[in-house]
Amino acid sequence: MILEFIAVNFPYLVSVSLLLVGLYAMIVRRNLIKKIMGLNILSTSVFLYLISVAYKEGGAPPIRVSEVEVYVNPLPHALVLTGIVVALALTSFALVLTIKIYKEYGTLDSDKLMDL
C-alpha cells in the first residue's frame, strides 16, 4: 500500500524532499552563498512539482504530430519556462548584493552580519 503510493507519486515526493533540502540550507546554513544555493534548490523543487503535475499517463510531448491524440498538458511547461528565467534573474541579483555585502563588511556569515 505505502510502497505502491511511493512508486506512483515518486516525482511529487522527490519534489517535497528537494523543497525540504532547500529550506534546510536556507535556515541552518550561515553562509550567504549557501543560502542562495538553498534558494535555487527550493525553486528547482517547485519546477519539478509543476512539471509532474503536467504529466498525463501515456501522453506525448506537446508538439503536434498528426497521428498522436493524447498530449501532455502544455500550460505548466510554459509557466516553468517563465519561472526558470525569473529564478536566474533573482539569483544574479542576490549574488550581486552578496558581493556588495562582502566588500562592505568583509564577511558572509549571516550571524555576524546580524550583530553589526
Binding site: V85, L88, S92, L95, V96, I99
Partner: peptide, 17 residues
C-alpha cells in the same frame, strides 16, 4: 535579450571577482 543578458551577468560578476 537572453543571450546578451546571460553573457552580461556572468561577465560582470566575474569581473567584480
Amino acid at each position: 535579450h537572453i543571450m546578451a543578458l546571460a553573457a552580461s551577468l556572468f561577465l560582470h560578476l566575474a569581473e567584480e571577482h
